Computed example of a mutant assay.
Amino acid sequence: MKKLLNTLYVTSEGAVLRKDRQNVVVEIDGVERGRAPAHLLGQIVCFAQVTVSPPLMAFCAEGGISIAFLSMSGRFLARVEGPQSGNVLLRRAQHRRTEDPALALSVAQGVVAAKAANQRGVIRRALRDYGATMAAGARDTLDTTERRLSDAARLALSSPDLDSLRGQEGEAANAYFTAFPHLLRNPDFTFSGRNRRPPRDPVNAVLSLLYALLAQDCRAACEAQGLDPQMGFLHRDRPGRMSLALDLMEEFRAPLADRLCLSLFNRRQLGPRDFDAQDTGAVLLTDQGRDTLLKAWQERKRMPLRHPFFDETAPFGLFPHLQAQLLARHLRGELDGYPAWIWR
């Protein structure tokens, strides 16, 4: 089983990262604020104005440690990484499958079915834990959404083509986010629908940042298995889009990112003071709020779960790597189909 490596998040404006022997050192205003042994790191994620020394970049590239640069809102800016590994035959097989819509359909069907089923799982957890205390209208809405998502998961497996499948995925997402406000139990916050670029309310600010972090983890998982993160099955090709990483993250949006978002608000780990409304209409996390989110994100990734296909317990953060491994085995012909992950 692959070891779950740590991610170093650098959120301080003006921080400087440098190499000291086999360690990554963080300095602010010339003063060392922390260091991490490089052999424990899988990636470094930098927010806003962070400087990385050329020797450290070279060291990370040689050691397989990726460096990602994100805006303060979590929008992906750039990524520094070393030479691509992986079997060229695997990538050729991936390219052949993704270029032919008929061949790509079976993988995409599994991804969409798992996404809808995992969204249904979030709804079911809420009904199980809090249904008795909910208003009748909210409970009825969640019951209806749970059935719609069950239908969506079933219909996805029989979609005749990718366009129909994408339409079903969009309808399921619309139903899910229409019900999402009923999952919030913190009266200080509301949610009126998904918006981004920029996010215009605190809930969307948290979702956008969590999705950006999850996308980086899924890209790293694809690359670790020798897959091309740009060539997807469900998401259309677009310059600069890591379509396969976005495909992979669909299975994890609800149980990993959405559940954590709800926990942060419902447990009052995040409050109004953790958000800053900009003149442009954007709502961003403050430094303190972002630190709270990143700590909770790392804790959630360390949570142990049993993977049904491997029948082993692993940290949740390793599951994208396990799914990328299964996809690679399917493309090599070792598995008849891609077993998408469904949260139990």
Results as ranks from 00 to 15, higher is better:
136 A>I: 11
22 Q>W: 06
247 D>H: 09
244 L>Y: 02
181 P>N: 05
178 T>R: 15
14 G>M: 09
73 S>H: 02
232 G>Q: 01
140 D>S: 13
288 Q>Y: 00
54 P>H: 11
342 I>Q: 10
169 E>I: 01
285 L>A: 04
120 R>G: 09
64 G>I: 01
308 P>R: 04
341 W>G: 07
22 Q>N: 12
125 R>F: 14
246 L>T: 15
301 K>F: 09
306 R>W: 09
70 L>C: 09
116 A>I: 08
152 A>Q: 06
189 F>L: 02
159 S>E: 12
215 A>K: 09
105 L>N: 09
7 T>N: 00
115 K>C: 07
157 L>R: 11
324 A>Q: 10
281 G>M: 02
335 L>A: 05
290 R>C: 00
158 S>N: 02
261 C>F: 02
5 L>N: 11
77 L>F: 07
237 D>H: 11
182 H>W: 13
259 R>V: 11
247 D>N: 05
276 D>S: 00
310 F>C: 10
174 N>L: 08
324 A>C: 09
267 R>I: 01
173 A>F: 04
12 S>D: 12
266 N>M: 05
35 R>S: 14
87 N>G: 14
342 I>T: 12
248 L>F: 10
164 S>P: 02
161 D>T: 08
120 R>N: 04
174 N>G: 10
90 L>M: 04
16 V>E: 15
192 S>D: 13
23 N>L: 12
253 R>G: 08
340 A>E: 05
266 N>W: 08
16 V>R: 15
130 Y>N: 10
24 V>M: 13
139 R>M: 08
23 N>P: 00
110 G>Y: 07
71 S>K: 09
104 A>I: 13
115 K>A: 06
180 F>A: 01
41 L>K: 02
240 G>D: 04
331 L>I: 08
98 T>D: 03
268 R>D: 11
236 R>G: 13
106 S>P: 06
271 G>R: 01
37 P>S: 01
37 P>H: 01
30 G>S: 02
101 P>R: 03
288 Q>H: 00
120 R>P: 04
30 G>H: 02
142 L>N: 01
320 P>K: 03
260 L>Q: 00
18 R>H: 11
166 R>F: 04
142 L>I: 03
261 C>D: 02
42 G>V: 04
139 R>S: 09
111 V>M: 10
331 L>E: 10
310 F>Y: 13
12 S>Y: 03
341 W>R: 11
80 V>T: 13
134 M>S: 04
151 D>H: 15
103 L>W: 05
221 A>K: 05
200 R>M: 07
34 G>W: 09
31 V>I: 14
177 F>Y: 15
8 L>D: 03
299 E>S: 15
162 L>E: 10
270 L>M: 05
124 R>Q: 14
39 H>K: 11
21 R>T: 11
90 L>S: 05
201 D>M: 08
191 F>P: 03
117 A>F: 05
25 V>D: 03
299 E>M: 12
241 R>S: 11
32 E>W: 06
310 F>D: 12
314 A>C: 09
278 Q>T: 09
196 R>N: 12
103 L>I: 07
98 T>L: 07
319 F>E: 05
92 R>E: 08
76 F>Q: 07
307 H>P: 03
223 E>Q: 13
88 V>S: 13
31 V>R: 15
22 Q>I: 00
